[in-house]
């Protein structure tokens, strides 16, 4: 599970249909670095930043994005 404040790289996007396509169309593509910025006060959704643009996404949807942590 992704942690707040860490930087990750997108490995691939799983799932199907609208949710997957929305993720792809927002440019969250394999190779992209994203940062998990914060959680909403109730713990869900989370806010990530990709190339300076904040994007909100529910945890259940974020799980479709397979990530690897970027060291350093």
């Amino acid at each position: 599970m992704a942690k707040v404040g860490r930087i990750y790289r997108v490995v691939r996007v799983e799932g199907a249909g609208l949710v997957k396509r929305r993720i792809l169309d927002l440019g969250l593509l394999p190779g992209l670095e994203i940062k998990v910025v914060r959680k909403a006060p109730l713990g869900d959704p989370i806010e990530i930043v990709a190339k300076g643009n904040p994007i909100s996404i529910r945890k259940a949807e974020a799980e479709k994005i397979i990530l690897e942590e970027v060291k350093g």
């Binding site: 249909g17 949710v19 929305r22 994007i55 909100s56 996404i57």
Partner: peptide, 12 residues
Amino acid sequence: GASSGFIMELPP
């Protein structure tokens, strides 16, 4: 129907 979720850009 499936939830459309909450994937959206937060406007600056």
